[in-house]
Amino acid sequence: MTGTTPALPLLPGAHLLSVEELGAQHISGLLDLAESYVDLNRQVAKKRDLLRGRTMINLFYESSTRTQSSFELAGKRLGADVMNMSVGQSSVKKGETLIDTAMTLNAMRPDILVIRHADSGAAELLSRKVACSVINAGDGSHEHPSQALLDALTIRRRFGRIEGLTIAICGDILHSRVARSNILLLTKMGAHVRLVAPRTLLPRDIGRLGVEIFNRMEEGLAGADVVMMLRLQLERMTGSFLPSTREFFHLYGLDHKKLALAKPGALVMHPGPMNRGVEIDSAVADDTERSLIQEQVEMGVAVRMAILDALSRQLSNSKGGTP
């Protein structure tokens, strides 16, 4: 059921902090493993006991629907005890620092800590302070590795490969951790990655990451196999990056007219949550022929099970988590 155990470890270390640290062999291995969980998740009996006795804590400093519930389900289906730390009800509200919270949780001897935080580097900081495995579920504008893996799985299942595909990532690249993780992953796997955004939403020197930059959808989408839309992160914007969401939709909002510029039958992805009428038109988002958005959510659970599976192979078996 879990597939054959590969010769190489599925992860480079005890944590999953970024795509940056993964090699192509890790990515392929994780995706292969995730395939088996897709099958499992489609059965009535989804439960396994790989993580029985293990404790997993979801520590989410930013609100999240799909990532948090996806990790929770993944953990539960593999038999772990899952605890959700909702920051709104915790000591964080009383001013406790990230590290103090982490040390407190660490003392409870969890095996896996899944963290989302608004600051880039938060997951890595945590990983240096705790004894358990840390999974980065999104840190600031840095990385969101499980999202990139689930996107890759979605693409690979549809096209049978990632190598050689032309993938256009459009919109708010500047604030997007999803974009950074996807750029890293897709280029590692041999895809041609394009970024389409106004210059105000492109980080400096992003071209050095081996991508092609476009300012216009007409040019950026031409011949693309996949159009990956990003959420316009209005809540992260301080000051004026754009004149208005109206103009943004006019220029970059994906509707059927703009989608027609891509390859015939090109597929659409979005990490969610969507701003309908801002970066994506409902007619495209809900077009089951073209939109992979629901499939991405399904792949999310499978990929996170694969990540937990891979991490569990490196967890210490002598005792449950060493503080």
Binding site: P198, R199, N215, L242
Partner: peptide, 14 residues
């Protein structure tokens, strides 16, 4: 200067 920078950057895009 930040507003000016972004306005120029946006104008340059087009």
């Amino acid at each position: 200067a930040r507003v000016m920078r972004r306005a120029l950057s946006y104008a340059a895009t087009f």
